[in-house]
Amino acid sequence: MIAVLALIAGVVLGVYLDPTVPAALQPYLPIAVVAALDAVFGGVRAKLDRIFDDKQFVVSFISNVLVAGLIVYLGDQLGVGGQLSTGVVVVLGVRIFGNVAAIRRHLFRA
């Protein structure tokens, strides 16, 4: 419940503050969003599995976003930024699907 409220608070904050993203960081924004989505679904799943762990959630969120950003940055430096972002999105997408499938099994038993 608190988590949902916090999420809503974050959205409201984002809408209210309306920060401008620096141009240099713009390529990383979608990646960060996907990584964050991954963290959220992972957290929900862990909650349903009754193994949610605050520390792990925090650390995994931060590290996922950082690592994803790092990979894209590295790709940019190597000249394969687009492909690497695609790779990151694919990997995170697979994880999100896995987590969502687990959540679905939890909720619907199917």
Binding site: I8, V12, D54
Partner: peptide, 23 residues
């Protein structure tokens, strides 16, 4: 410590979503 930090992180996630959408 962890509880507030978790909440902060979730707020950050929501913030991120909103910013990305606005962007």
């Amino acid at each position: 410590l962890a509880r507030p930090v978790t909440i902060l992180v979730i707020i950050a996630v929501g913030f991120l979503f909103a910013v990305a959408y606005r962007q």
